[in-house]
């Protein structure tokens, strides 16, 4: 068995753009020694059938994420602001009909 413990290649998160004009989506991760190989591995792993027209790779330890424990207090400022949605406002009947 190998006793080397330092040759596990770093982990990269992979994002891809499925089509022109579409936003990027998370695909999964790959291991690679550097960004160039991370891109190549991402292509071979997640885009063998033109699933993406563009790829991003980001070192996994550089991703900062919100935590599930804080999800309530973190997002609740948005809960009581119904006035941010168009349904909050009334429109004269005559205008509604002309839709």
């Amino acid at each position: 068995m190998s006793d080397q413990t330092n040759t596990e290649w770093p982990l990269w998160e992979v994002f891809y753009q499925p089509k022109d004009g579409k936003p990027f989506e998370h695909a999964g991760s790959v291991h690679a020694p550097d960004s160039e190989m991370a891109l190549q591995n991402a292509r071979d792993t997640y885009a063998r059938r033109n699933e993406g027209i563009s790829l991003w790779v980001v070192p996994s330890d550089q991703i900062v994420a919100s935590t599930p424990e804080d999800v309530g207090p973190f997002f609740d400022p948005a809960n009581d602001k119904a006035y941010r949605h168009p349904q909050f406002y009334s429109v004269p009947r005559a205008v509604k009909k002309r839709k």
Binding site: N6, T7, W9
Partner: peptide, 8 residues
Amino acid sequence: REAAMEYA
């Protein structure tokens, strides 16, 4: 794997 790491 080692060589690729070293190259990087």
